[in-house]
Structure formats: structure tokens, C-alpha cells
Amino acid sequence: MTQTFVILTVLAYVSSMGLYLRFLYSGKELTGRFATLLMFLGLVAHYLALLMRARGTHTVPYHDLQGSMSLFGWLLAITYLCLEIYHRERTVGAFVLPVILAFFFAAYLMPEHANAPTTVHGVVFALHVTLSILAYAAFALSCVLSLMYLAEERVLRMRRLGEVVWRLPSLELLERMSHTSVLVGLITIVVGTSLGFIAVDQQITEHYSYFDPKYLFTLFVLALYAIYFRLARTGAWRGARASKLCVFNFIFVVLSFTVVNLYFSQHHRYF
């Protein structure tokens, strides 16, 4: 059953990406609407694939690396779709879907990881993990938007306009979308981290301690994005500089998700 939903998810996402690309070149409204519809259907299928997998393994999706990556892809898709509806801008879909698909494929193609962390239960803990991954997804989206900004800005400054540049969102819209995405990330990471401390407080005697390098690194990432959010509105930084900073910050998110989780953290292996 899980396999069916995985195939449906891939089909929906790949078709959606194809339509988003076609929309980027043709600008046909109907194509764009179908792309969004397929993305939504992909989200539903992806959710069911996550659900079936969790039922099969009798645990939460973020129990292992595969589940965490798949959940990351799903939350990235949700964040993007909300952003698309909020800003009424579809052309970004063609750039975000490859990232979503990459995470989805990686999650389902990589071999099962033997070294799974201790299972922890509880609503607070589940919310902590989900919101933290959502924050990472929002930061990933802001990184994609910033890269788009930098590429479009370069094309405009070099005056080498190609086929697609006329259909891309304006630089200011990309900047606004990136801000919205970072704002979502900041709110969710603050709430998620706070819930993490509460969860630790509840389960301190069982599995967790207050001393985990992941906490410090998360606070560092939070500080970096808070700085970005502040600087991006100042005269000296708005525009390309802020976008570069956003891309730079995301390097630390990736570090947090990989190096810190795998080599430094005791309790945050996959999220």
C-alpha cells in the first residue's frame, strides 16, 4: 500500500514539475492551475505515503533519516503551496519541486538506517520535531527564492535576457516571498525549540539531558536568520546582499541537519 502512494506521489510531483516548467515557458494560466492542482494531489499522496510508512514501522515519520527527509519534503511542499497562494505567484514552482523531489527520492531510495534513535512519544515532542522540520523547510524555500533573486538580478544587470526572464517574478516579489518564508521559519523554530525544551523538561529523567550541542547550534541558526530579517530591511543590505546572506545562512541549516545531528548531537539524529 505504501508503495502505491509513493508511486502516486512521484507521478503527481513529476507531472506537476513538468507543468510548472511548461508554465514558465508558455505562461498559460490553465497550465499553471493544473500544475498547482497536481502539486496538491502530490501533497495528499505524500501524506498518505508518510502515514502508511509510519503505520508499517509502528512509529513516527521522523523516527529515522528516511522518514525525516520525506517529512521535510512534504513540509517544504506545503510551505511552498501556501506561499504560492499567498503571493499569487506560480513560476517559483519549477524551482522548488526539484528540491522536494530530491528529498523524496533520497528518502525512499536510500537503504534503511540501522542506528535508529530512541523512540520518544508525546504530543509536545511531536510538535517540537514537526515545527523544527517545518522551520528548516521554510529556510530551504527562502534559500531557493534567494538563489532565484540572485540569478535574475544578475541577468538583469548583465542585460542578457533569455526566454524565461520575462515570466519570472519581479525581484521585489522574490524578496518579499523570501521574507515571508524566513518569517515562517523564525516563528516555527522559536515555537519548536521552546516546545523542545518543554519536552526535555518532561522526559529529563528518561532519555534526555539539557546539554546537547544541537540546542546551541539551533539558537545560532535562529540568531543568523533574525539578523537576516533585520538587515534585509536596511538600506545597506536590501536586495542582492540580503539574498546572499540568506543563502549563506542556509549553509548552517544544512550543517545543523547533517553534521551537527550525526556527529555532535545525542538526541537529534534526524531532525
Binding site: 538583469l156 520575462w166 519570472l168 521585489e172
Partner: peptide, 22 residues
């Protein structure tokens, strides 16, 4: 794509401004 791109200097300029500001 016959009518999508600006053909006059003034309209090309305005389209470019829209690429920046919307």
C-alpha cells in the same frame, strides 16, 4: 509567444522596470 514580448524601446523599458518592481 507572438505578443508576449515588448517591441518598442519605451515598452521594453517598462517591462524591465516591472521585472524589478512588479
Amino acid at each position: 509567444e507572438l505578443g508576449t514580448r515588448p517591441m518598442g524601446v519605451a515598452s521594453a523599458g517598462m517591462k524591465l522596470a516591472e521585472r524589478i518592481f512588479g
